[in-house]
Amino acid sequence: VTLFVALYDYEARTEDDLSFHKGSKFQILNSSEGDWWEARSLTTGETGYIPSNYVAPV
């Protein structure tokens, strides 16, 4: 499992996005959609889309 960590805070703009804070960790579920990845937050357990340029591999 590849884990990613948030580099910045992000406020969701749609109900499909995940809001998160810098330092939040994610499991990436689908990275084939270009700049928006489907991810599960390891902090909240919620699933949604995150901007790929806001995260980096742990």
Rank of each mutant, 00 (worst) to 15 (best):
E33W: 10
T43A: 13
L42P: 04
V1E: 14
G45I: 02
D9R: 03
A39V: 14
R40M: 12
A56F: 08
L7Y: 03
I28H: 00
G34C: 11
L42E: 07
Y49D: 02
R13Y: 08
D35I: 10
S32T: 12
S41K: 12
I28D: 01
W36Q: 06
R13F: 08
E11N: 09
Y54M: 11
A39I: 03
S31I: 12
S31N: 12
T14V: 07
N30D: 13
P57E: 09
R40P: 00
L18F: 10
S41A: 09
G34A: 13
F26V: 04
S41L: 13
K25M: 15
T14N: 14
E15R: 10
S31E: 09
G23N: 05
S41G: 03
S19R: 04
E38M: 15
E11P: 04
Y10G: 00
W36C: 08
N53G: 11
V55L: 12
W37G: 00
A6P: 01
F26P: 00
D35K: 09
G34V: 12
G45E: 05
D9S: 07
K22Q: 08
A39E: 00
L29Q: 05
K22Y: 05
L29G: 03
E15A: 13
V58C: 13
G48R: 01
E46R: 10
D16H: 15
D17A: 15
D16C: 15
G34R: 12
P57C: 06
L29I: 11
H21E: 12
E33S: 14
L42T: 07
Y54P: 01
D9V: 02
L29E: 05
E11A: 10
I50C: 05
H21K: 15
R13L: 12
E33V: 10
T43R: 08
P51K: 06
G23P: 00
E38K: 13
T43E: 15
T14G: 15
G45L: 06
S41N: 15
D9P: 06
L7W: 03
G34Q: 12
E46F: 08
V1W: 13
D35Y: 15
A56Y: 09
V5S: 04
L7E: 04
A12T: 04
D16I: 14
I28C: 03
F26H: 01
R13D: 08
R40I: 13
V55D: 01
F26W: 06
T44W: 03
G34T: 12
N53C: 15
W36E: 03
D17C: 15
T2D: 13
Y49R: 14
P51S: 04
V55K: 00
W37S: 02
S32W: 10
F26T: 00
R13G: 09
S52H: 07
Y10R: 03
V58N: 05
Y49T: 07
F26I: 05
L3M: 10
F26R: 00
S32Y: 10
F20Y: 01
S32D: 11
N30E: 08
V5A: 05
N30H: 08
A12K: 08
D9L: 02
G45M: 06
F20C: 02
S31V: 11
L29S: 05
S52W: 08
T2L: 13
G48S: 01
A39N: 00
L7H: 02
P51C: 10
D9K: 04
G45Y: 06
Q27K: 08
L42V: 11
R40L: 13
T44R: 02
T47W: 08
S31F: 15
T43G: 08
T43H: 12
R40S: 05
N30C: 10
E15G: 13
V58K: 04
R13M: 12
Y49E: 02
L18N: 01
G48C: 04
W36K: 11
Q27H: 11
A6R: 00
E33Q: 13
F4M: 09
I50K: 00
R13T: 13
P57H: 06
S19P: 05
Y8G: 05
L18H: 02
L3C: 12
N53T: 10
L7P: 00
H21D: 09
T44I: 02
E46C: 10
E11H: 10
S19E: 04
K25L: 15
E38F: 15
